[in-house]
Every structure is written in structure tokens, then in C-alpha cells.
Design a protein around this nucleic acid. Structure first.
Lengths: 341, 341
DNA sequence: ATTAGCAGTCGGGCGTGTGGAGTGCTAACA
DNA sequence: TGTTAGCACTCCACACGCCCGACTGCTAAT
């Protein structure tokens, strides 16, 4: 456990670093946060915090910068709460509270307003769980490949390709198709994702089907991953304005990660959490994109539809502001939905 | 008109500059493209081409780089045609020709494959012209504001706000609403965009409506701009990999322009052109984003639905490759659609 | 445990110098 | 008149070296 003074100092380092991204010196901390100690004392504490993994010294004659561990500790225990400014609240309400229109338009509006207020990238994911599988079709392309097609309720189709073992004839394909339909029809596409192959279903004499089945289910998993998910992102540019992306290589790495919408959607949705609850993930250790932090909140948007709203920025993010904005937004959206569409 | 030799030299400069983005020297041209002339002769020609506006000399002891004018001339008259490599054609066909699924999925696939093959940003715009206006509603928010809502066929709603003049009561608002519905119901939302206010409709005693009407129609124009348009973009990252975006400021400027989807959609769609025809716009003079070139092709996707496929990259773009890829893609898509959805 | 003071380290900004790439110009030549 | 060789000139890009200043860690005193 950290002593009170260590906590104060760590908090000072993080606060200062969030405000301006240069290593924090002992003297600065003394002057601005802890006038009761000498800078030497603070230096000792900093040194201790460094060996505990909370701080990093870029080089020997530089101050300290917080590690990802420090940011996590900061968010969980140190950060003082703050309230949304009335100006911000007003902006949000003006934009959203009278918004008429389709869910898509509200999503777009939400991403724009969050990016505007926080100056980070904003993502909204809508998950529609009501869409169920009507049929699975296997089409022999007669070149050793099998086309796997999923047909769902809402006529959304997904398709993928599988290599066909040599010894398969059309009867066997038809048989495989019957089995697949028996297992999956009427279920939600998301069921593939956690589906364990039920070997029991296939008795010994049909063991040759096993390999094919596994492949097909893998394809179905992959192909259905984004089904019913709608991802909207805005303000990649905003995040790039921050100093961690001062060189193009880092900027491009960030953008490359943002292009993987499946990944982003997964990050935003994979931990449940009640309506309006806030989650913070910092760094790739917590499954956020590398060098990034993700703040998420969830709102339910009616039967079988749920939404996740998130902000993606550098680990050195202004968490206080982001949390406050997301909180307000989710509150308003829950309110909007509650009033009945 | 340019002499043959000037054309050859200009073509050499552009080709060489596209291949590697450094100023092209007279000696290089001589060695690689025109061994029959001396470098001095070429220098004279270069100097002439420069004063004609085709070339730019970054500084006195540097070679020449092509101006936007040179690129336009190159695309229109100099560039030698080339054919798609069989490898590329195969990639495209494998990806697309067996693609089953919704239009949205095909759009996504198209953006990905184009970005992959060209290494530039790719955009697809779908325009659905079949959506018509069912009703226009004016809601008095009783704070001096009027909420304008458009309801269409497909239950898409759009809304915007207008300041209400002081002397308007609910009867007048109802009257205005009746007029608006009379004019626009049953028409396509795009009709706002080129709509000229028909003063004749409003006779003198109702001239007070004029100001309000104009405002409302402006809002309707703005609000309906993207109606029925679906913009999908991929590979902003790819374009940034090119050397013109080596510094972050330029990269951010590019990205900021890419965030304006309305603008991009307009660039891609605003010049008709037959199915499969290719358009090249170079530089902001031709309404492309600043410093960028846009290559576009159009495909019709059935009744009242048309699509535009585009590639956005730096002015120094590999036009030959982009044209070839877009050509192949549009061919396949026209084929796909032709076979009957 | 805290603190003042001092020696030591390292990054980064800045001026200088130089090599090399490429031109424009001139004068000679076909 | 068009082409060419040769030369003087320009200017960028890069490297080198320098030094200033920012901070620290350590030591010794309180």
C-alpha cells in the first residue's frame, strides 16, 4: 500500500503530465503541489515510486512520467471527481435532447459531439441481438471449394469459403447442410462465437465430417462476428492532435488500429456492465489498442438492442473530462430511450 | 501545343516523379528516357516547360517536379495505358465475383480491396434516389424556435431548427406546413437541393411568410443533403504512407478533409458520367481535396440506386494503376448487378 | 526522516562547414 | 537556328562539435 504522501506525489505527477506531456521534475511537484516538503524528499519518493513500477524516467537527467500502471491507479483511486461544466452540459443537451430521427442519426450525432467535447476519437457500437438464423446453405463450387452462406431474419447474408476434402460428394454435402441447419436455425448468430463443436452429434461412421465441420464452424464464427453490429467512429483526427502522435509512424500505427472495426467493437462490447456504468481500459495489457486507453459506457436501447459508447485516446488522456462527458451523454440517452423512442 | 520532344520530356518527369518523389534532373531524363539528346538540350526544354507552368523547381540547384497542370496533362494525353496484371485481376475476382451478401457488405469489400491493391484511400458512395418525402412537419418549440422534421418513405427522419419570427402564431405555422407538404410530398429529398423558392406561390398578403420559408428551405436543403447517401471509406492510412504526408501537420490536414463525408460524397457523385466511365480530378482547382487527386467511376446498382467508387490519394498518384484497378472493379460490379441481384 | 548542496549526466538547440547535386549561361559547332 | 560541352555558381542536406540548462543521485549535516 502506498503512503499518503506517495499517493499525493503520484497524483501530482499524473495530473501534471496530463496537463502537459513533459517529464515532471521534483521541483515542479514541490512548488505546485507539495510546498511542505523539499524537492530532495520528493526525489526520494519519486525514486521509490519508480522502483515500484509507477514511474518511468526517460533518461537520467529528466523528470518522471507515469507508467500505464500509474494511470490505472490514478483512475481507480487518485483522480478527484469533477462535475460537468454547465456550458458542456448545455451543448450536449442542445444537440441531443431534441434529436428526432433514426437511431443511426443519433449515433452519428453522439460520436460528433463526444469528439468535439473531449478532443479524442469517439466510437459508438450498436448491437442488435434480435436477428436469428433462417438457414445455412452449402454450395459446392466444384473446384474443391465450398461456399458457406448464412441467411438471417433480416435477409442479411454472410458468406465464407472452405476447402472441401477430396472424398466429399454432393450427398455428403447435403447431409452436412441438414445437420448445420438442425443445430443453428432459429438461433442468434452470436451463438457461433462461443459454440463448442459437439462431437457427440457425429457418430463414428461419419467421423470424416469432423474436419469439415470444424472448418465450417470456424468460418461461421468469423463471418458472423460483426453481424448485427453497427460501428460508427469519428474524430480519429482529434486523437492524432495530441503530442504522442507527433511523428507520422505513430500516427499511422494508431490509425491502422482504428481501421480494425471488429477489434474496436469487441473492445467496446466485451465487458457487460450495467446501463450507464463506466469502464476504463488502459494499454494493451487491458486489451485496449496499443498505447491507447478506452473509456466505455453501455446503454440499452430497447429489446435486444444495446449500445456501447466509447472514447479512444492516448494513455495520457484527460480521464476526468472524458468520464464526465460520457456520464452525461449516457444519462441523456437513457433518458431519451426511457421516454419511449 | 507542345512539341513531341517536350511531351516526351514532360512524360519522363511525371513518370519518374511518380516512381520516386524527388525532383527529376536533366541527366536522369537523358540517361533513362532520351539518350539521343544531351542533358543541356533537355535543360533548355525543362526551362521552357517550367515557364509554361508544367514544372516547378523547388530551388535553383534542384531538378524539376511536375505541377498539378502537368499531372492533368499527363493523365489526359501522355500516360500510356497498361493492363491489369493477372495476379491483381485474380485477387479482385476472388474477392468479389462470388461475394454473396447485402449491398453494404459488397461496398465494404470493395473499399478494402481497392485500398489493398492501390495503397490509397478508397471510398464508395451509394445513392438511393427512390426514397420520397411523406410529410414535412413543423413543431413550435414555444421558445421562438421551430423544429422542422422530414419524414420519408423509409421512415428516415431528418430534423433541423429554425428561428421563428415574433409575429407567428400557430395558425400561420399550420398554414406554412400545409404549403410545404403541398410542394414537396411525393418528391425525392434531393429536390430541395436545386429548389428555387417559388415566390409566385405566396401572394402579397402572405409576404411575411417569405423570410421563414427561405430559412426552412435552407434547413431542408442542408438536412437532406446526405439523405439516401451511404458513404464508406477505408484506408486513410494507406494514403498517409506516401511521402507527401511525412509531417504530421500535412497528415492531419488530409485526415480532416477525409472526415467531411458530405464533401467527399459530393466530389464523388457530382459529375454524372456513364456506367463504368472514369473521371480524374486533380487538386483543389478541380474540386478535389487540397493536395489530392480523386479518381472516380460510377456504376448503376438497379432502379434508382447508383454507386460511385473512388480512390483518393496525393496528386502524385500512380494514376495508371488506380485507373486499371477501378476499371476492373467497376466491370465486375456491373457484371454482378447485371446478372440480377 | 528530512534537507541543502554539489557533482554528474544527458538531451537538444545552434552555428559552422562542407560535399554534392544540379542548374544556367556562354561559346563553339553543325 | 538548334544542339552541345564545359564551367561557374547556388543552395540543400547533413554532420560535427559545442555548450547550455535541466534534473537527478548522493552525501553530509540537521
Amino acid at each position: 500500500m502506498l503512503s499518503d504522501r506517495k499517493k499525493k506525489i503520484l497524483c501530482a505527477v499524473v495530473d501534471s503530465y496530463i496537463e502537459s506531456p513533459s517529464p515532471v521534475a521534483s521541483k515542479d511537484i514541490q512548488q505546485e503541489y507539495l510546498p511542505d516538503c523539499s524537492s530532495a524528499t520528493i526525489r526520494n519518493e519519486l525514486s521509490a515510486l519508480e522502483s515500484m513500477g509507477y514511474l518511468i524516467q526517460p533518461h537520467v537527467s529528466a523528470g518522471r512520467i507515469p507508467s500505464e500502471k500509474a494511470f490505472r491507479f490514478y483512475v481507480n483511486e487518485l483522480m478527484c471527481e469533477s462535475n460537468i461544466t454547465s456550458a458542456e452540459a448545455e451543448v450536449i443537451e442542445r444537440y441531443l435532447s431534441r434529436k428526432v430521427g433514426s437511431l443511426e442519426e443519433v449515433m452519428t450525432a453522439v460520436t460528433h459531439i463526444i469528439a468535439e467535447l473531449t478532443n479524442y476519437t469517439s466510437v459508438v457500437v450498436k448491437e442488435d441481438m434480435s436477428d436469428t438464423i433462417t438457414a445455412i446453405k452449402l454450395l459446392d463450387l466444384s473446384n474443391g471449394k465450398l461456399l458457406v452462406v448464412i441467411v438471417t431474419d433480416s435477409r442479411v447474408l454472410k458468406d465464407g469459403m472452405v476447402d472441401l476434402p477430396d472424398d466429399f460428394d454432393e450427398h455428403m454435402i447435403a447431409q452436412a447442410q441438414r445437420w448445420l441447419n438442425k443445430i443453428f436455425c432459429g438461433k442468434h448468430v452470436s451463438e457461433f462465437i462461443n459454440f463448442d463443436y459437439p462431437f457427440a452429434l457425429v457418430n463414428d461412421e461419419f467421423s470424416q465430417y469432423n474436419a469439415l465441420f470444424k472448418k465450417i464452424i470456424d468460418v461461421l464464427k468469423k463471418v458472423s462476428l460483426m453481424n448485427g453490429m453497427d460501428v460508427e467512429m469519428y474524430g480519429e483526427n482529434r486523437t492524432l492532435a495530441h503530442s504522442e502522435y507527433a511523428n507520422v509512424e505513430d500516427a499511422r500505427k494508431f490509425l491502422a488500429q482504428m481501421e480494425n472495426k471488429e477489434r474496436i467493437a469487441e473492445i467496446l462490447t466485451n465487458d457487460g456492465g450495467a446501463d450507464g456504468s463506466l469502464t476504463v481500459k488502459i494499454g494493451s495489457d487491458e486489451n485496449a489498442p496499443e498505447g491507447c486507453a478506452v473509456v466505455t459506457t453501455r446503454v440499452s436501447l430497447g429489446d435486444n438492442i444495446s449500445g456501447s459508447i466509447g472514447v479512444i485516446g492516448p494513455v495520457r488522456m484527460n480521464y476526468r473530462k472524458v468520464l464526465v462527458v460520457l456520464d452525461k451523454i449516457s444519462e441523456i440517452i437513457i433518458d431519451l430511450v426511457g421516454k419511449g423512442e
